[in-house]
């Protein structure tokens, strides 16, 4: 790739891949729109995917470029990014965040190997239809509503009510745990185990779910001193 241009375009099986990884976002955005405008006949009706590098994009920034592209007859279907936040923002808008896996190894975001040392932090209520998947630990400050999905290869901590679906140790780690201030998930999985439905009893305590000796275990947090 040449260094002096902000954006690169290439044809991929799914449409066009616009790679815009360096420079300020507003500059890159203008470059993309300018190019689309100049080559309107080429771009009209195109399906494009934008690789934003490691830039952190807010939802409004994504909707802005989506809408401006759509005004030019260009359909934005995916946003690729190394930033977890950008990806999560893009997926809330219903955009794809990865290309279908095939031999094109260059576009696939490589997860780092010390994954389990890191955590993704989400500071909002996860509503129905929203989904977060990470190879890192996952911390949610807020509720996870029914119909939302949270998936982590490590542990999950919810500072709020966990009522949606949760998968901890998604890559097969049965030692992972899930804890929440109110643990009443629609479905709970840890590693290879799917928890049986949990009937709700009276008072609500913060709880921790884990698998111990191949058995489901749900304990009240701080029952005794830990």
């Amino acid at each position: 790739m040449e260094k002096d241009t902000l954006i690169q375009i290439k044809g991929i099986r799914e449409g066009l891949l616009i790679s815009a990884q360096s420079g300020s976002w507003s500059k890159r955005k203008e470059e993309i729109l300018k190019l689309v405008h100049e080559k309107a006949s080429f771009f009209n009706g195109a399906r494009v995917c934008i690789d934003t590098g490691d830039t952190l994009l807010r939802v409004t920034e994504i909707t802005n470029i989506r809408d401006r592209l759509s005004d030019q007859g260009v359909f934005l279907w995916a946003v690729l990014s190394q930033s977890e936040i950008t990806r999560s923002n893009a997926s809330t808008l219903g955009l794809d965040t990865r290309l279908p896996v095939k031999n094109d190894d260059k576009e696939i975001v490589i997860k780092n190997e010390v994954a389990r040392e890191r955590a993704v932090y989400i500071h909002r209520t996860m509503r129905a239809g929203s989904r977060v998947e990470t190879v890192d630990h996952l911390i949610v400050k807020g509720d996870v509503n029914p119909g939302a999905e949270i998936i982590s290869a490590g542990n999950i901590i919810v500072w709020g009510k966990l009522k949606g679906s949760a998968v901890a140790g998604s890559e097969g780690n049965n030692k992972s745990i899930v804890c929440a201030l109110e643990l009443r998930p629609t479905q709970l999985r840890i590693g290879e185990f799917v928890f049986p439905p949990m009937p709700r009893k009276g008072k609500i305590f913060p709880e921790i779910a884990s698998i111990i000796n191949d058995e489901f275990k749900i304990e009240i947090w701080n029952k005794e001193k830990r």
Binding site: T92, R127, A128, G129, N145, P146
Partner: peptide
Amino acid sequence: RDADRIIG
């Protein structure tokens, strides 16, 4: 459930 999705 659908209202929750819409609000999101």
